[in-house]
Design a binder for these strands. Structure first.
Lengths: 301, 301
DNA sequence: GCATTCCTGTACACTCCATATACAATCTCT
DNA sequence: AGAGATTGTATATGGAGTGTACAGGAATGC
């Protein structure tokens, strides 16, 4: 079992040692072991716990309330031991896959809900939903029902995520963010997830989905003057048409244009050349980078 | 359960903390919980209530009136004067359209929610949502932001309907019904609404959405042996490819194939010729006909 | 051995929130 | 039009929440 001194934990979490001590004193949140001489030794689990606090705080919780919430989760039997966790994820994935194989919505529903009652959404998305989606996506041409499986699952997920979307509180103020798929892109899930994160961070998300010609973004952007325009492309390829469309788009809108997904991963150079910011493949990383960039522009002004 | 401190509520609603406190003092409208130290903690329901106040105020009510009104609504179960109703539908439609024009999700949300708190979904769908959708759809080429408007609204609606979809209990038993768009069709809303009705009638809905090649339906149908396969087409045109695809599909699956939407309205003859049942343009009428037909087949067996 | 890291405890700064009262602008009603 | 109610906001004062700084001392590690 690994232990970390307070300074290392500070590095790992970005929380200063002083603050960590204050938290322990005031909220007793992580009460780490001590050496015989009194130095704190944090376990990995405690670091995870701190990370969880951070994500809660990102989504608007104050520390005290975040601590309360974590306490409640522990109470509710929700928190996890490290080793149990590792063992469970494949099981969840397996059950999801089976449900999809049988096109069984009921089974799908319970396989989806169970991990969510135990773990926070972010974790479930990363450990269960995305891997399954990826696997199903990768098998789509090897099986005769591949495409149907993929449609079935992604429509299901889309509804589920849409529900969360509605639940995410709408803000009247706060910067707007336009989200849309690149033309020809039909995989919306990453984009929706990114939207979810952005909404949780206080952005007014303006979700336009797929099949919107890029030229049509201009009127929307001039009317709403968003803080950014985020486009997603995973199956689309870089070609002359796309290049021209983007090159036309950038100067016509008053906001920076970001592109995420495989396209951003594979063609960062050409994207930059037309004035677009590539932000990587992963939706979470992508949206983080966008938020950071927007924040920088803000302060730069 | 989630709670928000007063500052956050101010952000969420656009009402200043001072005013919020004044309202509580003067009208006792939201009387939020308090922490041990006396800080207010607003529940989500209270935030909703505040939003309702805002929408009332937007339509001319003063606060005191708005509060009275909300009190009255709570009193007798949110009922309305019957005669006001007729007059209200255009107003709701108008407000929805305005919200879409401004790409204002918050306004959209209140314009969407308000009629739903007063009238049953079916009515709201028929009187408000579909007319607005139709109007936006019909204007898509006359305005430069037409397509964007349409995307914005239909993605919003899709999430909302998706939520209801999830809510509709999934049944393990009961006949299955496969729903999908015809190839090239990207308008899913009618199909989703049809799915909603079918689910409410006890069908196990297997929703596959758009962009599924018809040939890929065969493996799904043989695995699940649904009571019917319902396809939707509103913008697609009848052509040789579609004719061939359908002609191939019908004998390959163990279930009757139905087609709804404009395509069914405009080409009932050719559809019948390839063994498909056209069920009309309107989603509600369509799903009724499908259910009726399935029932007849059942009893015929 | 000496720089670094960590310990405890107290204090401070800055923000957010609470109550209470006052005030000015607007509405309402006679 | 003018009295009175309505309503958003301003001010004053104090407490709560939270990050950080500082002092004096001990442990750690090369």
């Amino acid at each position: 079992m690994e232990y970390f001194p307070i300074g290392r934990v500070a590095e790992l979490t970005g929380i200063s040692p002083v603050t960590l001590r204050a938290w322990e004193r005031r909220y007793g949140l992580p009460v780490p072991h001590r050496t015989a001489s009194g130095h704190r030794l944090f376990s990995m689990a405690e670091v995870e716990q701190l990370r969880r606090v951070l994500t809660l705080m990102e989504s608007g919780y104050s520390i005290s309330r975040a601590v309360e919430r974590i306490r409640a989760e522990e109470e509710h039997g929700g928190r996890f031991d490290e080793d149990e966790q590792e063992y469970k994820w494949p099981t969840y994935r397996q059950r999801l896959l089976e449900a999809v194989d049988n096109f069984d919505t009921t089974a799908l529903d319970s396989a989806y809900n169970e991990p969510l009652t135990l773990f926070p959404v972010d974790l479930v998305i990363d450990e269960v939903l995305l891997p399954v989606l990826e696997q199903i996506g990768s098998e789509w041409e090897q099986r005769d029902d591949g495409i149907a499986r993929e449609h079935f699952f992604s429509n299901y997920l889309r509804n589920k995520i849409g529900t969360r979307f509605n639940h995410e509180v709408q803000r009247r103020h706060g910067p707007a963010l336009i989200l849309a798929c690149l033309p020809g892109e039909s995989h919306e899930l990453g984009l929706m997830l990114a939207g979810l994160v952005a909404a949780a961070r206080g952005y007014r998300v303006l979700y336009l989905g797929s099949n919107l010609p890029l030229s049509k973004l201009q009127p929307v952007a001039t009317r709403t003057t968003p803080a950014g325009i985020a486009l997603s492309g995973t199956t689309v390829e870089w070609d002359a048409k796309l290049e021209k469309d983007l090159r036309d788009l950038v100067p016509s809108v008053p906001s920076p244009v970001y592109v995420g997904g495989d396209l951003a991963e594979n063609y960062p150079g050409p994207l930059r050349a037309v004035g677009v910011f590539p932000v990587g493949r992963d939706f979470r990383e992508g949206i983080e980078r966008i938020i950071k960039d927007i924040r920088q522009r803000r302060t730069a002004e």
